[in-house]
Design a protein around this nucleic acid. Structure first.
Length: 921
RNA sequence: GGGCGCGUAGCUCAGCGGUAGAGCACUUCCUUGACAUGGAAGGGGUCACAGGUUCGAUCCCUGUCGCGCCCACCA
């Protein structure tokens, strides 16, 4: 093995081998375990969020595969209707064309070409991450099979009356020219104005003052509303006002919706352009005056002077005209929430159109119950509150989109505009006995992307066919996702899963946090703080990184700032850390928190961890080289038994972490065992056995076997988190440990052996001895290479026996010369001292330590001990503590008082002695 | 307005009723034959604040302050 771990050389080679050996397919044996990937956009690229999520899913998948489960990680991609269509439209725009120049068919053809061209990117990137998805089952939401599932669900829901077509207000994007669901509209506060307008009363003098943030819509007002209990206006209800500019008379109505305290307490009602007003209009039978065309340009329903004006131009004109008429009472600055399309960022217009809707309440009810009754569990649990909140207030889902890229709605219109829904035109004709000559026109609209995503857990498994995979892997075991798509996706999968499969789509939903940059900022192109997971794996030079971050910005003026910040944060670019380091970092970051800050310092630490593991393996291999490792006469040492006991504890902790979606705890347990117990201690302890001429052969054999077996077990435990380095090392180590499988991937995840408290305690004593000596060495700045003698005094029963059992390790790890008890009557030399129980460990100071330094050291220890002792004594002095605390706790405190007291006494005696000797010297 | 979350070492975060932990950063010593992407030792915290429950609270409860996210029709 090379001296330094170099991920570049191993990762892609191993992945290719796994893939060609078909290691990612379900084994066909064991309990089913399945995860469906949240499908990324087919034309997208892998970002940190994907990499994080994929790492989690892959860790779970590999873990369960090794547990012997019949494991499927189902891959696939999403057609991402609006997003993908926009990308291709932008390409066309660059050529000076629009999609309308091409026409629907040619445009869709072009999108398919783009999909073929760029669709492989994300799959390639997932391979670099080591994702063990079953590529043979790769699916795309617009595949023939999945499209069939979409049609089937649509037809069935329609037949049940759960899908209907209706004319009502929708969120209209005047730029993209499509309807959007409520979820795709983001409302942000923006500063604007509140115009107070004067509407003259038709009978008599005076006027009502209405306040509005959208004066241009007044042209479509069909009423003014006041609160029914408002004394100021009660007498006017039923009377009429003159709508300025439009020159129509409109009624004054009473509706509870009005807030008396806001503005004048009078509200203009524009049912065709405001969701609230629409409701009011429905209640009062008001007419709708639809002022806008699909571009939000005023149409012929507006007075002639305003026709053809864009909504913002119309606003200016309306205000100017009203001012000229003296009908503007006042204008105030006002912060309002402006709805914008999540893709186009255009201001959304409530607009009256025909759209398709899913009647959601009958679907939401069982979906709510499924979580309430625990058939689906959110992890962390409190996300169920968010889910409940949404599901209890859910509204019908507008599923039609006026786009070209997507699943076309399976509805046909006859010449009389009668609607026929069916799986195909021919089915429709047959079912309804329509003559072949009767022209039918298919609905132009496509379905919301999330409609097909909602079917993902079963459509990918072959539904509507009753496939074997569907039977075996549905419901899936867990859904791994971010909280940002609980409503978009998770809730809808639950609803559709229950509806069509009669069963929840997954038993658990693991909701992970969202990856942000080191400052907690969302990563975005315009902020210039994006990290590409592939750059963390392969490394990237500074210039290239700067170029990448500043290229193709929507706002080019940001480039300078981005460049500066990038140069500051990454003066040397980014080093190549390798996939395993990146993955281990992600795992260690997978805490319960919602925002996860990704700090490059962290990945460096875990790259070092990979290197540590690599070198530990080198040491183990060197140590066993040329020796028979098979069973034979062996005599395990205390150290051997200790490391096995500690390994068992680490495996337990790791399994607990993996089983509870606490990959941070799992990775921590493995990190700590590997570094602090296996490397720092056991490898060093083993040297005392292996590199000694006096160790008997059975002991050496036991040490070698323990080394190789512990490493081999550790590799298997680490594999789900760090697949590449573990496979690479395992290929050499596995056979030596008696395992002859072709890949670590298909080896069993290690069962925890037995822990041994007695062994742990015995080793603890030896370690404490070594630490005590090292502490003196460290604090006295004695070089590690400087060997010195240690004398012992005050040994308690058993101490000397323990000493003998641990002597070879103590001598070696503390780098000691002579190590012996003071003889009876032998004068105690001037010494630095440490206490280990009643045992006094003496380091003769002559030539090593000066008195002042030792006095200072002792003072410090004594002060700390006095504090601890006082605290503990106070506790025991409290009668109610002794009376109420569990006996074990009280006993523990008593023990501590004893320990502290003994150590304190020892050190105080020593301090006095050192002082005396010092002054005498 | 409703819902959720966070405030622990300089930074990023675990812990969550019984002696405050890790990584990174910092200080000192050390190239000893697995590893300087390393080893050894060390400094550093009134666990936001105030009450309460308890023998005992960083942990449970209540409130205050600060920060954040999500939903919602105040024109």
């Amino acid at each position: 093995m090379d001296k330094t771990y170099s991920p570049r050389d191993i990762e892609q080679r191993l992945y290719a081998r796994w893939e060609s050996e078909q290691r990612f397919r379900p084994s066909g044996r064991g309990r089913p375990y399945s995860i469906v990937i949240p499908p990324p956009n087919v034309t997208g690229t892998l970002h940190m969020g994907h990499a994080f999520q994929d790492t989690i899913m892959d860790a779970l998948t590999r873990y369960h595969r090794m547990l012997g489960d019949d494991t499927l990680w189902q891959p696939g991609t999403d057609h991402a209707g609006i997003a993908t269509q926009m990308v291709v439209e932008r390409q066309l725009n660059a050529e000076g064309k629009t999609r309308h120049d091409l026409g629907r068919e040619a445009f869709v053809e072009r999108v398919w070409r783009w999909k073929e061209e760029s669709g492989g990117t994300i799959a390639r990137q997932m391979r670099r991450l080591g994702a063990s998805v079953d590529w043979s089952r790769d699916r795309f939401t617009m595949d023939e099979g999945l499209s069939r599932a979409v049609t089937e669900t649509f037809v069935r829901l329609h037949a049940e009356g759960l899908i209907y077509r209706g004319k009502r207000l929708v969120n209209w994007d005047p730029v993209l020219h499509t309807a959007l669901s409520d979820l795709e509209v983001l409302s942000e506060p923006e500063s604007g104005h509140l115009w107070h307008l004067r509407y003259p009363l038709v009978d008599g003098d005076g006027a009502l003052i209405v306040a509005t943030t959208r004066p241009e819509t007044m042209l479509g007002d069909t009423a003014v509303a006041v609160h029914p209990d408002d004394e100021r206006y009660r007498h006017l209800v039923g009377k009429r006002v003159r709508l300025p500019l439009a020159d129509r008379d409109i009624p004054i109505i009473a509706d509870e919706f009005v807030d008396r305290a806001f503005g004048s307490g009078c509200v203009k009602i524009t049912p065709a352009h405001d969701f609230n007003d629409y409701e009011v209009g429905q209640r009062h039978g008001l007419p709708l005056v639809n002022l806008f065309d699909r571009d939000a340009v005023l149409n012929d329903a507006a007075p002639p002077a305003y026709r053809g004006l864009d909504r913002f131009e119309a606003r200016q004109r309306v205000v100017a005209d009203l001012e000229a008429l003296g009908l503007v009472d006042k204008i105030e600055p006002h912060t309002l929430t402006v709805p914008r399309g999540d893709r186009s960022n255009a201001i959304i217009e409530p607009w009256l159109t025909d759209q398709w809707y899913v009647r959601i309440e009958p679907l939401a009810k069982p979906a709510l119950e499924a979580v309430e009754r625990g058939r689906i569990r959110f992890v962390p649990e409190n996300w169920d509150r968010t889910y409940y909140e949404w599901m209890r207030n859910i509204k019908d889902w507008c599923i039609s989109r006026q786009l070209w890229w997507g699943h076309r709605i399976p509805a046909w219109y006859g010449p009389d505009e009668r609607i026929y829904v069916g799986r195909s035109e021919s089915e429709v004709r047959a079912r309804h006995g329509l003559a072949p000559a009767l022209p039918l026109r298919q609905d132009e609209d496509v379905l919301d992307t999330w409609f097909s995503s909602a079917l993902w857990p079963f459509s990918t498994l072959g539904w509507p066919d009753a496939t074997a995979e569907l039977k075996k892997f549905y419901p899936t075991s867990v859904l791994v996702t971010g909280f940002d798509i609980i409503f978009f996706w998770v809730a809808r999968m639950i609803m559709f899963g229950l509806k069509f499969m009669g069963e929840v789509p997954f038993r658990e939903v693991y909701v992970h946090g969202l990856i942000r940059d080191a400052e907690g900022q969302k990563m975005s192109k315009s902020k210039g703080n994006v990290l590409d997971p592939l750059d963390l794996i392969d490394g990237i030079g500074l210039e290239e990184l700067v170029a990448k971050r500043t290229a193709g910005l929507m706002q080019p003026h940001l480039a300078k700032g981005i460049e500066k910040a990038t140069r500051k944060q990454f003066p040397d670019g980014i080093a190549a850390y390798g996939t395993d380091a990146l993955r281990f970092t992600f795992c260690s970051l997978a805490t319960l928190s919602r925002d996860i800050r990704f700090d490059v310092g962290r990945i460096e630490g875990y790259r070092n961890f990979c290197n540590k593991l690599w070198n530990a393996a080198r040491f183990v291999l060197l140590s066993v080289e040329g020796h028979d490792l098979g069973p034979g006469e062996e005599q395990p040492s205390l150290a051997d038994r200790w490391v096995r006991s500690r390994l068992a504890a680490a495996l337990q902790a790791t399994a607990a972490g993996l089983g509870s979606y606490r990959l941070d705890l799992a990775s921590q347990a493995l990190y700590e065992f590997t570094w602090y117990e296996f490397c720092d201690w056991y490898l060093e302890l083993s040297k005392a056995v292996l590199q000694s001429d006096t160790s008997p052969e059975p002991e050496k054999r036991a040490a070698r076997r323990t080394l190789i077996q512990t490493l081999e077990t550790l590799l298997r435990a680490l594999h789900p988190l760090m697949p590449f380095i573990t496979e690479e090392i395992w290929q050499r180590v596995g056979p030596l440990a008696g395992r002859d499988g072709p890949s670590i991937m298909v080896e069993p995840w290690p069962a925890a052996g037995a822990r041994d408290a007695a062994v742990d305690a015995e080793m603890r004593w030896i370690m404490d001895f070594i630490l005590a000596v090292r502490q003196i060495r460290g604090e006295m700045d004695i070089a590690p290479s400087r060997r010195f003698d240690v004398l012992l005094a005050g040994a308690a029963a058993g101490d000397l026996a323990r000493l003998e059992r641990g002597r070879r390790w103590i001598e070696r790890l503390a780098n000691l010369g002579a190590l012996r008890p003071l003889a009876a009557g032998e004068p105690e030399p001037e010494s630095a001292v440490a206490m280990l129980g009643e045992l006094r460990i003496l380091v003769p100071m002559a030539g090593l330590i000066d008195v002042a330094a030792e006095v200072a050291r002792l003072d410090k220890r004594i002060a700390k001990l006095r504090q601890d002792l006082a605290k503990t004594e106070a506790k025991l002095g409290n009668a109610s503590f002794v009376a109420n605390a569990p006996a074990a706790v009280v006993e523990q405190e008593r023990q501590r008082v004893q320990d502290f007291g003994r150590e304190l006494a020892g050190l105080e005696t020593q301090l006095a002695r050192v002082r005396r000797l010092g002054s005498g010297a």
